[in-house]
Design a protein around this nucleic acid. Structure first.
Lengths: 80, 80
DNA sequence: TAATATGTAGGTTTTTTTACCTACAATATT
DNA sequence: AATATTGTAGGTAAAAAAACCTACATATTA
């Protein structure tokens, strides 16, 4: 199924949150990639909301950023 | 790559959380499935931690349960 | 200036999820 | 007692992510 517009937006919000946390720690894509089992080029796509990652990938990123998975969803949602 | 033990545990915790929220609202698997674009038999597997779902599936479930995605991660993590 | 690091983008093969369907035993409802 | 609902489990084809790799233009650093 094609990704719904609403979900695309959520992927983007999540990606931005990940990028924010990464920058906050002064990590480059390659540095973060070393900390978690996700390739740097894939993290890039995730941050841009271009990838519909699986749960384990999300968990790996949370681990690399040393945050609770829920912290990756710390954004407000628009009414629908 | 095979799913790491640590991530399996997180999938299980997330699944239990989803089941809790569903039961709280007195929804059956089939009722929840009607509210979000996820098949009831797949929700069953997700709740049991047997499925490494994608982000959009998570978002659909959050929509069906009428909660913020972060609420699906409302559990404590063990030290590692 | 030369070397290094960075974000970005495109591609490939293998593995996995998705999106169904079906069936069944146990429980609840009529 | 008969019917409907529920959780569970197994299987399928098609679509997608995973797990890499390479290249390049632009900073940044030595």
């Amino acid at each position: 199924m094609a990704i719904k517009e609403n979900n695309k937006n959520l992927l983007l919000l999540t990606g931005k949150r990940i990028k924010h946390l990464r920058k906050e720690q002064g990590l480059s894509l390659r540095k973060l990639a070393q900390r978690c089992d996700v390739d740097f080029s894939d993290i890039n796509k995730i941050e841009k909301g271009e990838r519909n990652m699986q749960m384990t990938t999300l968990f790996e990123l949370a681990k690399g950023l040393e945050v609770h998975p829920r912290d990756l969803f710390d954004f407000e949602m628009e009414r629908e």
